[in-house]
Design a protein around this nucleic acid. Sequence first.
DNA 1: GCAAGGTC
Length: 1005
Amino acid sequence: MRTVLMVAEKPSLAQSIARILSRGSMSSRKGLNGTCSVHEYTGTFAGQPVRFKMTSVCGHVMTLDFLGKYNKWDKVDPAELFSQAPTEKKEANPKLNMVKFLQVEGRGCDHVVLWLDCDKEGENICFEVLDAVLPVMNQAHGGEKTVFRARFSSITDTDICAAMARLGEPDHNEALSVDARQELDLRIGCAFTRFQTKYFQGKYGNLDSSLISFGPCQTPTLGFCVERHDKIQSFKPETYWVLQAKVDADKDRSLLLDWDRVRVFDREIAQMFLNMTRLEKEAQVEATSKKEKAKQRPLALNTVEMLRVASSSLGMGPQHAMQTAERLYTQGYISYPRTETTHYPESFDLRGPLRQQANHPCWADTVRRLLAEGINRPRKGHDAGDHPPITPMKSATEAELGGEAWRLYEYITRHFIATVSHDCRYLQSTISFRIGPERFSCTGKTVISPGFTEIMPWQSVALEESLPTCQRGDTLAVAEVKMLEKQTSPPDYLTEAELITLMEKHGIGTDASIPVHINNICQRNYVVVESGRRLKPTNLGIVLVHGYYKIDAELVQPTIRSAVERQLNLIAQGRADHRQVLGHTLDIFKRKFHYFVDSIAGMDELMEVSFSPLAATGKPLSRCGKCHRFMKFIQVGGGGGRCAQTGGPATPRASLQAWAAMPADPTAARRPQQRGSCPGPLASTFPVVTRTNLCAGSSAFVRVCGECPGTRWPGSSPERPWQRSVLQVAHSHFALCVPCYGRYTLRLTRHVSCVPGRTGWAGGSRPQQPRAHTPTLPQAKPSRLHCSHCDETYTLPQNGTIKLYKELRCPLDDFELVLWSSGSRGKSYPLCPYCSNHPPFRDAKKGTGCNECSHPTCPHSLSMLGIGQCVECESGVLVLDPTSGPKWRVACNRCSVVAHCFENAHRVRVSADTCGACEAALLDVDFNKAKSPLPGDGTQHTGCVFCDPIFQELVELKHAASCHPMHRGPGRRQGRGRGRGRRPAGKPGARRPKDKMSALAAYFV
DNA sequence: GCAAGGTC
């Protein structure tokens, strides 16, 4: 029997379609990726008995990206991304193993029927599926067709069966138009993003964005927000005047009348009208009218409308609302939440979902009445042919769903009930009056039948005072006519709901991607969400949009997306060649890009107004290891910082500037310059710049000049000046001891510049720093150190304070160390700004401190201060905090475990010896004579912090007390032993965690 | 580290 493979776009659809086609007689199993299911049944296909295998993908199988080497931002000119840089298709989600899954299921099948969504993206996924399965399927017999496309407009029995009966072919042109869209978005987005990020990165101190992105959807989205901001800024309030009349309706009730002219902008004119009316005693009824009006029930709910209401009425952001809706969908409470359709197909069973709600505690009465009296057909909406409108599928209560899920579900259900309810009918009464020559009127509404507003009470017709019964010619006494002075008010910032409407109107994004774009501009710090979910652009967002307007307004206008879409549609319709359209559009954007690059100074001028140049920001803190000048400590949003120690204002700017301007190293010029030989082909001599204390056998090391032929960094060329900086680290050489040689060669040279005059020893007199205002500033936002001389920026760890660490230097690069601290009772560790940004060892990670550094002899490193494996986490090591005295602490260098110990010790050192029981390093402690806990007059004791009976009493482990063997009682200390993670058994001299040993062996052994 | 489009 032949096999027909059928593939839908998502697992839920595969199940629904299989259930319809098999009439419920299918067997289901999970596929190898654990996400997609396979539903099997037998039936007939082209008049023959066959076995059907219905399964699905999960959206796109493949994604487009540049070849790996073009993803290196420092080595590729962004302009190359427009044409030279080749792209490749990669699996969109490698964890799903989709290609393999399709091939396993497709192997040996004879036909494939593609049930992907009926839009361009679905057509594109058809070919992704075919690329995977065709090579493993059985060969066609004698010209028989293998590939079929099912086209359906809703997931109903009739539609699905009709689609199966009229199978067609996938549309290659539509798929190609998506390929082109993917390539355009990738090339344009990445080129602009990389260029402007690199251009502005590190240029301004308080520019708090590490990524300045550009995209054909996100940029116009931001544009809408800034456009509203500009309107608010340029708004000039105007004064206007209004006449308000009050008449006596009966003895104790008066009516406020609205002026037919509404308002006038000329005070004298308004005064004239007031003079003409205020002396009148009577208001004459000129006309009365009564009209029956209807307030229409809502259209069926689609995604965008759901997101709008979620934001404006439920206070839920679009991204969050979508996540909540997806959860409700996967739990079976609502139908598929991503749909553009607001129209129920004729065959849709509306009573079924309604019956589900007939016993609901909140709306049972309304639902039962509708079921009994007959439902109203929903209004005719838009049928996008994707999925039915969002519909509640089963009843649920607040207790069942909880919180926000309930609020969203409640809205969806009330909306659904409203769509099958009747319109709200009300009577609108109007009375027109004349007071002197001027006309006034008043209006009242009376509800005839509430209709859908019963289930959506917030939509109710506002109850107004009932009007007196009167006829034409009646007169009412005028109680008062007065003139009110008012002012026009500016618009408010865009609400998310308004932004969604604008995006939908201009075709920016899709129902599924609109929340993503809005989320993007928030996360990139271009806008912030304010109260009422209004989007206020930040300085960065405003400068970017104004910059685009200044250089090339099309980059931010919403028309750019629709213009590209028009080109893509030509491909989809088969009216244009996809390569030609792609080439033509890329050429236009390439020209735009080059013009943008040439004109970037225009945007930079705007940046300068809003942001402070890095060189003028921050406070001098520590010395650079390259030029030995002071680097500035910069906090985003800083400026006038507060001193963390005193709480007072940080050092005045003027004195700091004078301090920063001092020469780097006053003694450097007087010292004779030491020179060494370059081992490179030129064999020239260069300054010997420092000595290293790497290990006993190492001696001075020398750096070669980047100009040596053959010393270029791979891939560099004179045409790519941005690569020149890395030339300096190429082909460097050390005189190291034999074990070290070859391990450190490329890594440890970066602190040295061979440019004459830029080398120097540490030393000289440090300028007097105002101690009370040492820049120890609270770190709420990303902070960094900037060397204005070298024009380098080093980011620092967050969520703590940073201060200078005793003017100590890193032995690897001569940078002064800084101390990161999370608070007085928390963790602290020293770190080298350079090592933290440019890890010196292969096993080192970015952003780490000396407590994770595997330097063999540096007194601040893990090797020297590590005690033993963390009691809580797998990879961490407990490290002595050398700055924590007199309340000494050891803290894990990975997790939050902290052990407090030895409150009365004035010196604690990590010994070279280890504990015989648990292999942890012994601590050598000198206690305060007066408060020593030791027996007798003893002040010094060496022991294991975990096993030693004296120390055990003094140690208080936070977080993980029960994990340690010492808390489990005697005789149960088998386990892994304390020393795992620090040093190997039988090698007491090797001061290193066990698991680190294997990694370090690569360097040293 | 980048886009936008699917979907989980």
